[in-house]
Design a protein around this nucleic acid. Structure first.
Lengths: 330, 330
DNA sequence: CTGTTAGCGCTTTCAC
DNA sequence: GTGAAAGCGCTAACAG
């Protein structure tokens, strides 16, 4: 249906080799011949057949993006950043959303490998040595974001642990005496095999800094049904209290709940989130949180991946900055 | 690097034709031969080379998704729905975000055509006969969502016009006497060539129903800087007023603004949005709006497209339901 | 400078 | 039932 290099060759009375030399301006061709070929190609609207090209070159100029969490508000920005960056390098993105299902995730990775993507950006629910090996078997460069998978796979993200430490420092400096840390279970199908790297790092950071902080007590709430527990905690003592959440989403839910219960924020209790999702623009009181650039993460992930694809060894650990943002809720 | 059907053939002492018959269970092969081939293939972890397959079959099992608006909150759900549905049919999605740039959009469509995607889902900023022709030239099935491009291209969406009429009816029934319709310009690079189909439809619906409604006055605000205009309008008369927005985002911005200005909602003025984005979960007072399922749109868009790919002629006009949702803000 | 040949990995047609 | 050969559209290596 479409015009081929063979047809151009025939029309110009030359061989396909020559046509190829013209089209891909390779050396060793008479300028006049080249001119003529180019003109004919132009006129006929010739476009090289991408698949044929990929097949012979062993490069598809495609990158697979495998992400488990669509609800995460980082998602749009992240995708946007990656897409833009990738296209700047003439790559296209294959998208695969795994809905937090480990099996789907593996399947997607395999399918992308079948499609010979040049590289994969992975935000995974799977973890462990065995999975690391699984990912490795395809001999395709992979870059992870969010959840680390293993030491052999490049990783781009913030330092969650440090970020949570900074949050605690901030709250302590504000004079809070008790910190209620809210970190509910996340996935639909939680299991010991679920990759919760970022959440673990944040928790780690919290525990460390709370231990160091003199005179600050803390409680960790992990139940799925955290409202009830919170209400009790809030009334339990006279200390100045703050609720610190591992994610803005929880903070917002809690905010709604407390408002309805007539609890004043930050008067009766402080509230702080994490991620600085753009929804925050619309809530009152405005929410203190930890901010970082998903744009930057997306861009750097693609950059690292392209580097790896080029055969250069990529940075194993790219850490981008974060900052505690003080707003009305604390 | 990877095992090929040729190698399997050699190992089994048969021809590639026979291997092919076994692998794709085509008829005309001795069960025993087949068994043996399958076992060897299994053992060696044989996976067919997708590109080679695509090249010869002329099908890539890929769908391009070209979307201009990443900020639109429908985006994640829409993408998610399409991705899921596509993968159910063994298709993968190529994603291309165009940032509302008409040139980028065209470029992306062309590139996807080069990559021989089997079909394209399009939410476009371009419009007009010429663009319709541009899209048509590639001989690739296309399904549009949101903005209609032309009568020759299938379209999946809600009936915006009717939805806006329903909104007005709802507000009139609630006793509002003046409706302030807020429909600011949208794109970065607005131009007469920008496709604003949905917005036009909504406006059309508004005008029609306001004309029909006796004793209801209306104002249409389209300036970029709508706050100032609104404040004046709100104080202008004694009538019961409501602000009707073409999108939840505007409604939320206005809500923030009015709150700060000490205007009570719905006491001093009613407020209504459109789209029912999930951010609404977190705002007080809760926002009345028009709701519809982006999931359904995504799923149906993919279904239509796959139908078109299969050569059946797809439904030109798939309309999904909407409903007015009454909440606290009116 | 240009043509020829071989090959990427798979499918398909036609003999045997 | 099975094998041989041709072809998808392109690139690359080697002659001439």
């Amino acid at each position: 249906m479409n015009i081929t290099s063979k047809e151009i060759a025939e029309l110009c009375g030359v061989s396909r080799g020559t046509v190829d030399r013209a089209l891909n301006n390779r050396p060793g061709i008479n300028p006049e011949t080249k001119d003529k070929i180019m003109k004919v190609a132009e006129q006929l609207g010739y476009r090289p057949h991408f698949l044929a090209q990929s097949l012979v070159k062993g490069k598809t100029m495609s990158i697979g993006v495998v992400i488990f969490d669509i609800n995460n508000r980082l998602f749009p920005q992240l995708i946007h950043a990656m897409d833009t960056r990738a296209r700047e390098h003439r790559y296209f993105l294959y998208l695969a959303l795994t809905d937090k299902d480990p099996e789907t995730e593996r399947e997607c990775i395999r399918n992308l490998a079948d499609r010979k993507v040049d590289g994969i950006v992975l935000l995974s629910v799977n973890k462990g040595k065995e999975f690391e090996k699984y990912v490795g078997q395809f001999n395709i460069p992979v870059v992870t974001i969010g959840n680390r998978v293993g030491p052999t796979i490049p990783y781009v993200w913030i330092n969650d642990r440090k970020a949570m430490q900074d949050s605690v420092s901030f709250l302590v400096a504000k004079g809070y005496e008790e910190i209620i840390y809210v970190s509910p279970p996340i996935g639909h199908k939680e299991s010991p095999k679920t990759n919760l790297y970022t959440m673990e790092q944040r928790l780690l950071g919290f525990k460390e800094s709370v231990k160091r902080a003199k005179g600050v007590s803390s409680t960790i709430v992990t139940s799925k049904d955290y409202y009830a527990e919170l209400e009790q905690l809030i009334r339990s003592s006279r200390k100045r209290k703050v609720i610190l959440c591992t994610s803005d989403i929880y903070a917002l839910r809690i905010m709604q709940h407390l408002k309805q219960a007539g609890v004043s924020i930050p008067g009766d209790v402080g509230l702080m989130g994490f991620d600085d999702i753009d929804t925050l623009e619309f809530v009152t009181p405005s929410l203190s949180t930890v901010s970082f650039s998903s744009n930057e993460i997306g861009r750097l992930a693609i950059d690292s991946l392209i580097q790896a694809i080029a055969g250069e060894d990529a940075e194993m650990n790219t850490v981008i900055g974060h900052r505690v943002v003080e707003r009305q809720s604390t």
